[in-house]
Computed example of a mutant assay.
Amino acid sequence: MIVRSRAPLRLGLAGGGTDVSPFSDQHGGHVMNVTIDRYAYATIDDSASGMAEFHAMDAQCSQVVEPARMSITGGPLQLAQGVYNRICEQFLEGRHPAIRIRTHSDAPPGSGLGSSSTMVVALVTAFAEYFNLPLGEYEVAHLAYSIERSDLGLAGGKQDQYAAAFGGFNFMEFYADDRVIVNPLRIKDWVWAELEASLVLYFTGVSRESAKIIDEQARNVREGKNQSLEAMFRLKDEAVQMKEALLRGDLNRFASVMQSGWEAKKKMANSISNERIDQLEALAFQHGARATKVSGAGGGGFMMFVCDPGDRLPLIRALSATGGSVYDTHFTPHGASSWKIA
């Protein structure tokens, strides 16, 4: 039997960072995001060798070992290793099957699209299908979060796992004790289409290590630094404003809130922006952009630009000349999915 799964990557539209502890535990976090038609993929089948096999196809990295609890090696294989360990211990009564796990993603690690967390969701979804585990969207997302943050010790928030599990436009609320509420939005068709036509997604060519940025952000909250805390409260409020703009179809307000949110986010930690990002932002505004932000923790990866659809091609040409890559992308209403091949 072969099982395949995929989970969509996401764009963080507003409120990103307020889903990270300790802010979300102390004050509650609000995030507005949307999934796109780029995915993390996982395949599980029986191992012909009788071993446990792990293959990160895009990183060209493999490990073949006796079926047992994995020692986490770090690097590209650690996500599959962590999911294998947790599923075996929590759902298979400690049994370690001889299976082959293969993964790949449409975005590189450090892209700012939630690629690592989305991969964990894809893996959990594949395991749930392979072993017939009764897991809904909330359970998949929470399990993926627990594996990534507790088992693997990777820093980050909660929005990526829930976005990948649910899909679509979602307004999310994050509270203490891992309480999460996902509110799917019913976006009018014309708003959906106009926003897609207005969006330019640009990869800077530089991946970044989000953990360092997130650690700085969390430290600023713990130490009560006023500028960082004020920025976080502003981001939380702007997630609510963006939700309202989307529901009303007010795309001028959408752009205004996105830009305001980006200005606030830059105050959360020094490493969120840098000289190259500032230069790209200035260039984009010279060629029709009305709003910009870096997706994810910041520091590099993907940048989003919102413009009038009539200005989209001049903006794409200007950005393409800077050494990065413009990605054609569309929103998707579907979350993680899996299927069997006999």
Score class of each variant (00 low, 15 high):
F91C: 13
F91P: 08
F91K: 09
L92F: 11
L92Y: 08
E93D: 15
G94I: 08
R95Y: 02
R95C: 08
H96D: 05
P97L: 08
A98M: 01
A98Q: 09
I99M: 10
I99A: 13
R100T: 12
I101R: 10
I101T: 07
R102T: 14
R102E: 15
T103W: 04
T103C: 10
H104A: 02
H104S: 07
A107R: 07
A107G: 09
P108W: 04
P108T: 08
P108E: 15
P109M: 02
P109V: 01
P109C: 04
G110M: 14
G110K: 10
S111Q: 08
G112Y: 06
G112R: 05
L113A: 07
L113R: 02
L113M: 13
S115M: 00
S115Y: 01
S115D: 05
S115F: 00
S115P: 05
S116F: 01
S116I: 07
S117Y: 02
T118P: 12
M119L: 15
V120W: 00
V120D: 02
V121F: 01
V121N: 00
V121W: 01
A122H: 14
A122L: 12
A122V: 13
L123R: 08
V124C: 08
V124E: 10
A128C: 14
A128Q: 11
E129V: 04
Y130D: 04
F131P: 06
N132F: 07
L133V: 08
L133G: 04
P134T: 10
P134V: 11
P134L: 13
L135D: 14
G136S: 15
E137D: 14
E137K: 15
Y138G: 03
E139K: 14
V140K: 04
A141G: 02
A144Y: 07
Y145E: 08
Y145A: 08
S146P: 00
S146F: 00
S146I: 11
E148C: 03
E148K: 08
R149A: 09
R149N: 09
R149L: 07
S150V: 11
D151H: 12
D151A: 12
L152F: 11
L152D: 07
G153K: 10
G153F: 12
G153S: 11
L154V: 13
L154K: 14
A155N: 13
A155W: 02
A155Y: 05
G156L: 04
G157D: 06
G157H: 12
G157M: 07
K158D: 00
K158Q: 13
D160I: 00
D160E: 09
Q161S: 07
Q161F: 03
Q161W: 00
Q161D: 02
Q161K: 13
Y162E: 06
A163C: 15
A163E: 01
A163R: 03
A164W: 03
A164G: 13
A165M: 03
A165F: 01
